[in-house]
């Protein structure tokens, strides 16, 4: 069991608790012992980076410092945006001693442990797409997805900028496909899997954002996907909750189930439904398909947000 510091981020702490629950349930199966960070805050998404960049750096340094204080060498994330924010701050602190000195001194002045830049930030996706995590995943995914057709949606900030993320080719990523296949599913291919879902501007520029959001959902649907899986709870939120707005705006009703990565793997690993916390309707399709009913697909479920406007 490898001990890693675990940063949930806002979404898994609050509105996407099912991401946290399923991650906690899955972790031991893939060789990870999670040390939950208690005293941390939001990483600021791209927003604090854009509003108060010096504060962004300090907030993220604080998270990194508490991760370092656990003695773990890895900080595990379950959100694309957290991953980029923390890695970007980490690279700045690692590669510039004077900057690290200043930030670390500031941290200590307010009672936070110093940061010596010994931590590596890694997304759960990377932990289970290769190495020991992948071997364990293959062994644990015994229930299999039984041919379920899954569309991988990467989102932006786990791929780009590749200089900072650096795990895989941002134009031809492979990690989600590899995981889907290891779980016995069939990975659907479609061009928008590496594009943006529009989340960052979904409130400030809804129309522009919906123009982005529709692409992955429509393409995945056309390619015959049963569900979309994403490693990012923000992508999850827009892909899932905004389907009703998409319907209102375009008249197209996709009813595409959206899964967190940990839920998808959890299904294949045979975790209890209570641990995965699916919205009921998702459970019906996914659970049904897994237990062998894949052949007789009924009508697609409502998205979990099925909110009338």
């Amino acid at each position: 069991m490898r001990r890693v510091a675990y940063y949930k981020g806002c979404l898994a702490s609050l509105s996407a608790k099912e991401l946290d629950t399923s991650t906690q349930a899955l972790a031991p199966r893939v060789g990870l012992e999670l040390i939950e960070l208690e005293s941390v805050t939001c990483c600021g998404a791209g927003d604090i980076h854009e509003a108060e960049p010096d504060y962004y750096l300090h907030l993220n340094a604080r998270i990194l410092a508490y991760a370092e204080a656990t003695g773990a060498d890895t900080l595990l994330t379950v959100c694309n945006v957290c991953t980029l924010n923390l890695r970007q701050a980490n690279w700045q602190l690692k590669n510039d001693e004077a900057l690290r000195e200043r930030v670390s001194t500031n941290l200590q002045r307010v009672g936070v442990p110093p940061y010596n830049a010994t931590v590596e930030v890694r997304h759960l996706l990377w932990e289970i797409a290769e190495g020991e995590g992948y071997e364990l995943l293959k062994a644990t995914a015994h229930r299999g997805l039984k041919g379920l057709r899954i569309a991988p949606f990467y989102g932006c900030q786990i791929l780009r900028p590749s200089k900072i993320l650096g795990f895989e080719d941002p134009d031809r990523p492979w990690s989600l496909e590899r995981i889907i296949e290891a779980c016995g599913g069939e990975a659907i291919d479609y061009p928008a899997k590496v594009k943006c879902c529009g989340f960052p501007i979904i409130q400030a520029r809804e129309e522009t954002a919906l123009g982005e959001l529709i692409q992955p959902i429509e393409q995945a649907k056309d390619a015959g996907a049963d569900a979309i899986v994403t490693p990012c709870p923000l992508c999850h939120l827009s892909l899932d909750a905004w389907q009703s707005k998409l319907r209102a705006a375009t008249g197209k009703d996709f009813r595409m189930p959206i899964l967190h990565l940990s839920q998808l793997v959890g299904v294949a690993a045979g975790l209890e439904e209570s641990e995965l916390k699916f919205p009921l309707r998702h459970l019906l399709t996914i659970g049904g398909a897994v237990s062998g009913a894949a052949a007789s697909r009924g009508p697609a479920p409502e998205p979990s947000s099925g909110v009338e406007l």
């Binding site: 108060e52 010096d54 750096l57 690279w91 700045q92 602190l93 590669n95 900057l99 590749s162 080719d169």
Partner: peptide, 22 residues
């Protein structure tokens, strides 16, 4: 300035296994 201050460090990311496209 809060972004500019980190640019030198980001410019030094090496394309090792850890950073850079594999």
């Amino acid at each position: 300035l809060g972004i500019v201050q980190g640019e030198h460090a980001l410019g030094r990311i090496e394309f090792t296994e850890e950073a850079g496209v594999r």
